[in-house]
């Protein structure tokens, strides 16, 4: 297992191999992403029953929770890439940081905006400075910080390492976001989807929510891979394989 992982790691560490293998994956992952996301959202919007207290406004959950969860997971992935970039100075890891940050920031923004829109009819306010909402806002700023660092430093390798450090350190905030509703009292409720015990939602709501979540993860993966591929081509633009690759396909 370990050896297999190590081999995989070295292979994916090569930009050319990464470019080739993801090129083979993407034609499959794209339709899968679109289908799952579409199915989850349509199911949630039109077919799931309303909530006994919130009525139909709860349908915002089908984007709010998946977006928030993908934003958090994406940040952890970016943190891992940051660690690899700092310690092993792997080019591919630097590229991944740059590819993850923009859509991660978008997802964090979506979670915040849909949360505010949902909060108005249910809580009676768009925003309060409670632990969950504030730490989620910090997550958005961390994403924006990673993007800003990338843009501020001209040398791509130095930019990658600086952004990597912020990505690694920022993972602390992911832990805070996750546990904020348990550590402090807040307006935000606890989590509905639970790993270790039964989720506090009936299957006719939970199923579309989980499908939509899978859809968001897949879409995130697709966008990251395409952005990473563009970045690979750009950084390797003087390499022969890139020239050949681009002259083959007109």
């Amino acid at each position: 297992m370990w050896n297999w992982l190590k081999k995989w790691y070295h292979k994916l560490g090569s930009p050319r191999y990464f470019y080739e293998i993801t090129g083979a994956w993407l034609p499959w992952v794209w339709p899968l992403a679109v289908l799952t996301l579409g199915a989850g959202l349509v199911w949630g919007l039109a077919f799931a029953p309303p909530d006994y207290q919130q009525g139909n406004s709860y349908r915002i959950i089908f984007i709010h929770v998946p977006a928030a969860s993908a934003a958090l997971l994406g940040y952890v992935a970016m943190g891992v890439a940051g660690l690899v970039a700092l310690v092993w100075r792997m080019k591919m890891a630097e590229i991944m940081i740059k590819a993850i940050a923009p859509f991660g920031a978008t997802l964090a923004a979506i979670a915040l905006i849909t949360g505010a829109i949902w909060g108005k009819p249910t809580w009676g306010t768009w925003w309060v400075w409670d632990a969950r909402l504030t730490s989620m806002l910090i997550l958005l700023f961390l994403y924006l910080g990673v993007i800003a660092l990338q843009n501020a430093i001209t040398d791509p390798r130095q930019a990658g390492r600086a952004a990597g450090l912020l990505a690694v350190v920022g993972v602390i905030n992911v832990v805070i976001v996750k546990y904020s509703v348990q550590w402090w009292n807040s307006l935000h409720q606890g989590s509905t989807i639970r790993m270790t015990e039964e989720s506090t939602m009936p299957p006719e709501m939970l199923t579309p929510l989980l499908i939509s979540m899978a859809g968001f993860y897949l879409l995130f993966a697709c966008i990251v891979l395409v952005n990473a591929r563009s970045e690979v081509l750009w950084r390797e633009r003087r390499a022969n394989w890139v020239r050949r690759e681009l002259s083959n396909v007109l």
Binding site: L45, S57, R59, I63, A109, K120, P121
Partner: peptide, 24 residues
Amino acid sequence: EMGRHGFYVWTAYGVSLALIVTNL
């Protein structure tokens, strides 16, 4: 209409879609 909550639900979905499309 979403049982009086149409404005909230559709705004949330609309804004999210717009942001995702911008990224694409």
